[in-house]
Nucleic acid binder design. Structure first.
Length: 418
DNA sequence: TCTGGGGTCCTAGGACCC
DNA sequence: TCTGGGGTCCTAGGACCC
């Protein structure tokens, strides 16, 4: 049996954790650069706010309603997510972390087992021990577990497929809300008279494969209770991307370069956390397509001399690529660094030209940098040898005016109990 | 009148997810 | 004023090979 456990308004719940004064109040969480609403709690939804609302347009209204506004604080959300997953792993031997706020739990098919009871237990512990409200969907396939989870959000917090009136539920469930059916597929299906999950369940498999590709066929099978997509095996990550829009207008190469270096640092931290190396570096550069101004977009890729997770290697290549694609005279909006060709570093082969001593030195420098940045905060120590490191003028820096403290990951920000 | 056909690999782009 | 960021998977189509 498959459980889908999902945090309710997860980012908003994380923000509320250390702010008991916000109980019952509307909370919204903003995207990077405080651009738009990406998460909101029920109280905010009830006031008519939506995910995707442009912040500056609703700012006054939010103030009027006494809403709490937060810039997104992924350090906090990731930490809370980790705590939830530890709890799940204590309950279940087979957990697949699907996203920052959702995990699939795979339980054996026991006879006479009250799965709902297990679900309620997980829900109680998540709330009591960690302070995050979660809902649990329980079903024989992932797609049905997702569907049950949505039902659970409305009624009771736990929903078990075998215990509900399945036909009734499917007939009332819009096809566009089925997991794996997005805008395009929903529009196509509706044009064919397939309007509900019930209709889709009875859609002929050969048509599903022909019109909705193999993934659509999987969805149809899963609606029929067949577990067509099991646990995704722990597959090593395939790419690491750091992509951020600038906080303000940026024209010059030596303003973009420090931003790119900053993103490269983040990318390398992630790479090393996963004990991986990369072989390719790609840099993208964009103007703002929503703005009425001359447009330019380009990218360039380079292969590293050999797989690496050392910042100097990657940073050097990234800056060369940036210089190659940069054009004067455009108002730039975003740069991206993408690392691909990822491998676990222990699988790395040494060749006869490898200078082991030099490698060790570089590795030691990286370790020292990581240690210092961990202790004194990100970016305390950075590479300055590029000549492009920039001064204090950093127009690219992300806007985060409503950032909450790193309550759980920085001793200085530890919440106080009065 | 004929210009096969099967296979692999790569990339670009679409679709979907949270 | 401004419209996020980070992923995966699938398909189509071109290049190339035999």
């Amino acid at each position: 049996m498959i459980f889908l456990v999902d945090g309710n308004s997860f980012y908003a719940s994380c923000e509320r954790l250390f702010r008991p004064d916000l109980r019952g109040k509307p909370i919204v969480v903003l995207s990077n650069n405080d651009g738009l609403v990406i998460a909101l709690n029920q109280e905010a939804k009830d006031l008519g706010f939506f995910r995707g609302d442009v912040f500056y347009k609703i700012e006054k209204l939010l103030v009027k309603h006494g809403a709490a506004v937060f810039s997104s604080n992924y350090t906090l959300y990731n930490d809370i997510s980790g705590r939830l997953n530890i709890l799940y792993a204590q309950t279940c031997d087979s957990v697949e972390i699907y996203s920052i706020d959702e995990s699939f739990l795979f339980f054996p098919d026991w006879k006479d087992c009250d799965y709902s009871e297990i679900g309620r237990n997980i829900r109680d512990r998540a709330y009591k021990d960690i302070g995050i409200p979660v809902c649990v969907g329980i079903a024989p396939s992932k797609t049905l577990a997702k569907l049950c989870n949505k039902i659970a959000k409305k009624y009771g917090g736990v929903c078990e497929w075998p215990k509900i009136n399945q036909e009734e539920v499917l007939k009332r469930f819009p096809v566009k809300d089925v997991w794996g059916i997005g805008k395009k597929k929903a529009a196509f299906l509706e044009s064919q008279g397939i309007k509900t999950a019930y209709d889709l369940k009875n859609y002929p498999p050969d048509l599903a494969k022909k019109n909705l590709t193999i993934t659509g066929l999987t969805t149809v099978q899963e609606l029929n209770g067949i577990q067509a997509s099991g646990k995704i095996l722990e597959k090593p990550r395939q790419q690491i991307m750091v992509s951020r829009s600038f906080g303000g207008p940026v024209y010059k190469l030596d303003e973009i370069a420090p931003a790119l270096i900053d993103y490269a640092m983040d990318a390398v931290v992630r790479l090393r956390e996963e004990a991986m190396t990369c072989s390719y570096v790609t840099v993208f550069l964009f103007t703002n397509p929503f703005r009425n101004c001359p447009q330019y977009a380009n990218k360039a890729t380079a292969k590293l001399a050999r797989p690496s997770n050392c910042l100097p290697d990657i940073e050097y290549v990234a800056l060369e690529l940036l210089k190659r694609i940069y054009r004067k005279g455009y108002l730039f909006h975003k740069t991206v660094i993408l690392l691909t060709g990822l491998e676990l570093s222990m699988n790395q082969e040494l060749d006869m030209f490898t200078d082991i001593e030099k490698d060790e030195k570089a590795e030691n420098i990286m370790r020292a940098m990581e240690e210092i940045n961990r202790k004194y905060g990100k970016g305390t120590l950075r590479l300055g040898a590029t000549g492009l490191a920039g001064g204090n003028n950093r127009p690219w820096l992300m806007k985060r005016e409503y950032l909450s403290p790193a309550y759980t990951t920085d001793l200085k920000n530890l919440p106080k109990a009065y």
